[in-house]
Design a protein around this nucleic acid. Structure first.
Lengths: 209, 209
DNA sequence: ACAACATATCACCACTCGGTGACAAAAATC
DNA sequence: GATTTTTGTCACCGAGTGGTGATATGTTGT
């Protein structure tokens, strides 16, 4: 018997490829199992690689998570939040702008289940990934508001009102992973989220008008 | 040497007392460590009792958690949400009523850190305790709305708007356990929460007027 | 006093967790 | 072709998890 490898191909050895497999494993595990499933052993198993390499290449799980955080497009860009056209967005009346923003925001996050999973993680604990996301979000959101809203919305109470609505949307998005209905509001279908957006429209309408 | 018990008192054996110690241990552990600290071993250690008794008396941790859930005053009553006087509350103008409700709601939950801890737990997983709380809440909130608001607020969008604001408050309360500031809003002092309530007032004002 | 029973403790199981040192195999270098 | 370096695997550690059977001890009834 020359060699027992009947069906196993020759295993190539490449640090880059292996690193990427590990990073990708964090993502798929996070999407499939939620943050509870993201551990050293599970990630290594998912990547089909020995866990030792997590320590060799990333110094540990936090390092790997940090690397994952820097790779991904977790938070929508200004452009996406503005609906694809910053100039046109800037020319809209304030009320329409806020309404469009809320719809874009919801759509952007519904398109990013990983981001929602990380947001759920934030609620529970702080780690490389949540800090990363938190920093980017704080920066983007604040930029966005400075750019498009603050000058026309100097009232502190109204600014707080908008943040509260944003917090509500975050909450509903996070919980939509585990429940189908909250306080009589559906959290599943596109229509459900249209109704939520309509509710937000009413809130904005009142806040501005 | 007759008996080695120098400082240990005679250990009395009482099923009721031990059960209560276990239930109380769930509470203090939940308050001190958060839901992550609530495990069979930790609860038994906290109660100063063998973990076997959790299985004998409650059939396991879920049973114990369920018992804990039924013991506590986790969710504010209608009376508390109405500010102590249902009649007077019912006679207020709608806008004042909603404003008072939001302030009472915030105060009631800030007074119940355990409830907030359970709400954080809800985000992560479903168990006896979260299901219990969820059921009570859904029932109370819906009752409250049917009783005081629905007849004057038939608009579905406006109802959704109020729920979104409530969701936002939940989110801010939960996150106040780990962070001090969110989107520029402080989450620590009484003044911080007054500002949040003021923001909600603006939202309500617009929603009704 | 003794037996019967309820109550509590203990030792132990199989398992998972994060983490590491020793070693094999492939690649790169000489 | 031989040697060194990189890449990967394996076996193992200590600590902690949920869970259980055997056993000791306090309580109660006769």
């Amino acid at each position: 018997m020359l060699c027992g490898m009947a069906k196993n191909e020759v295993k190539i050895r490449d640090k880059m490829i292996t690193s990427r497999r590990l990073i990708a494993a964090v993502g798929s595990l996070l999407a499939r199992e939620g943050f509870k499933g993201v551990g050293v052993n599970a990630v290594a198993r998912e990547a089909g690689v020995d866990k030792k390499l997590i320590y060799r290449y990333f110094g540990g799980l936090p390092g790997l998570i940090g690397a994952f955080g820097k790779e991904g497009d977790f938070w929508p860009s200004l452009l996406e939040l503005a609906g694809g056209d910053l100039q046109a967005f800037g020319r809209m009346p304030l009320e329409d702008r806020l309404s469009a923003f809320s719809r874009n925001f919801i759509a952007a996050l519904r398109r990013r289940p990983l981001t929602v999973a990380i947001m759920a993680w934030e609620v529970v604990e702080a780690n490389e990934l949540t800090r990363e996301l938190e920093a980017v979000r704080e920066e983007r959101i604040m930029d966005f508001f400075r750019m498009f809203f603050v000058s026309e919305l100097p009232d502190e109470d109204r600014q707080a009102g908008i943040m509260i609505v944003g917090a509500g949307v975050n909450y509903l998005l996070i919980r939509s992973g585990h429940i189908d209905i909250y306080g009589g509001i559906g959290l599943v279908t596109d229509d459900d989220w249209d109704r939520i957006a309509a509710g937000i429209d009413r809130l904005i309408e009142g806040l501005i008008g």
